[in-house]
Design a protein around this nucleic acid. Structure first.
Lengths: 240, 240
DNA sequence: CAGATTAGAATTGTCGACAATACTAGCGGC
DNA sequence: GCCGCTAGTATTGTCGACAATTCTAATCTG
């Protein structure tokens, strides 16, 4: 198994485990740049210099341009003709837009998951949830949940929908943007334990094979998260 | 049959109205190839030969490759390393997957449209609907509705959501794929008049500024369309 | 001194050529 | 006659160089 072993102490770090050394050069560079952008190694709003990066990675500009093109397709950089690419600087409105899209797509994913997940998959999902529960008991849980653990859970459900297009939209594009915003905004929300409870309701509904309820719970979960962010943004705005 | 500009008297004809001669070469080629693929000028499953197309369009392989990359991002072609790109041949399962995604996204779009559309936008939407009504009275309406008119309507509502990410997902990617499947499958459904009525319910809800109802009606509309396709697929499968 | 202008440098867009990989046809062996 | 191998061909992947455009900054003018 390839995977991103050197990243953290965690056994299976997180959803973005895309191999960094497989296939063609654009593939590799795309993964590297994506990670660099998401984790803030390349500052938001900063320019992507083709000659510079080409030298840095020891490649030509051809493959690099293809990689940048894919970053643009993912919404991680914006490009203007004859000017170049810049790392996106997410605005609060863009952030809220993403929450609406997630509410719609992941709600549907939960519905389909309740219909299509195999018993084995559901068991694994339950196990993951239990594991999160222990994690929450140990530390106060904020750190883990606010980072990759939460996405791990959502990732599984999307996979469980068995809808390939949904998987690509969410796992290959949107979740990376979500991680980007978490690094850029870095809000210290206390929603960890609350979110854990909501995750529990979702798994319950899936186990009961109740698509309607699964979708409702997922949408409520994401909506609550959005409203929490809206509140934080307003506070941050007023109090400076 | 170049573009559908002459369709209506409206200033902005229909969703696919992307200028074919603006900006850089990849932009132009991308639009051209996309249209060629969607309308079936390039057969489904056929190979995209880089040298051949480069000669045909009188350009180099560099810009062409970038255009192909974007087609891949839209899901119109599939690419394998060292092998090349082929036009997607849509399976029935992929088709149904898209309906589920549309149900989720467009449901949300309708909800947001009911909240965010300006009075002027709503008036235009109503006008468009009336115009479709006349069209239905004139011919029996199947042809028009089954083609681009239906997408025009959906396009407007997505725009009315005022959610940029939703607009990009649906108008720049998914709707083109929907058009592709309509050319590939070409099902003669008699849903035209029925769909018109459903469109009316959606506009009613938006005029009443009722987001919940707008979403419900939109989802019901797309679900009905999906179930219709499922039925047709099953018939087509059994009777040969 | 402020603002517009213009020459210069740097970056992006495009091209043709080379290298690496995959497909094809022909041959030999079983 | 069928299967596996091999050499040849064609296509994709990658590179370095040239053309077109944009940004910079130094100069000139009011």
């Amino acid at each position: 198994m390839r995977a991103v072993e050197t990243m953290t102490g965690h056994p299976n770090p997180h959803p973005a485990a895309t191999p960094h050394d497989a296939g063609t050069i654009p593939d590799r560079i795309f993964s590297l740049l994506r990670e660099a952008i998401i984790e803030g190694d390349i500052a938001p709003g900063s320019k992507i210099s083709e000659p510079e990066l080409a030298r840095a990675y020891g490649i030509s500009r051809g493959p690099l341009r293809e990689a940048i093109g894919r970053l643009e397709a993912c919404g991680l950089v914006v490009r203007r003709a004859n000017v170049g690419a810049r790392v996106v600087k997410m605005s609060s409105t863009q952030l809220l837009e993403i929450f609406h899209v997630r509410e719609a797509l992941e709600g549907m994913a939960a519905r389909l998951a309740a219909q299509n997940m195999s018993a084995a998959e559901i068991a694994e999902l339950r196990a993951l949830l239990d594991q999160h529960g222990e994690q929450i008991d140990r530390d106060t849980g904020h750190a883990y949940f606010q980072r990759e653990g939460d996405l791990d859970f959502h990732y599984r459900i999307v996979q469980g929908s068995h809808n390939q297009r949904l998987v690509e939209l969410l796992c290959n594009d949107l979740y990376h943007v979500v991680r980007l915003y978490r690094y850029q905004f870095g809000m210290p929300s206390k929603r960890g334990p609350r979110a854990f409870v909501e995750h529990g309701h979702i798994v319950d509904a899936i186990e009961r094979r109740d698509p309607e309820m699964a979708e409702l719970m997922m949408r409520a979960h994401i909506r609550a998260s959005r409203e929490n962010v809206e509140r934080l943004l307003k506070e941050h705005q007023t109090q400076g």
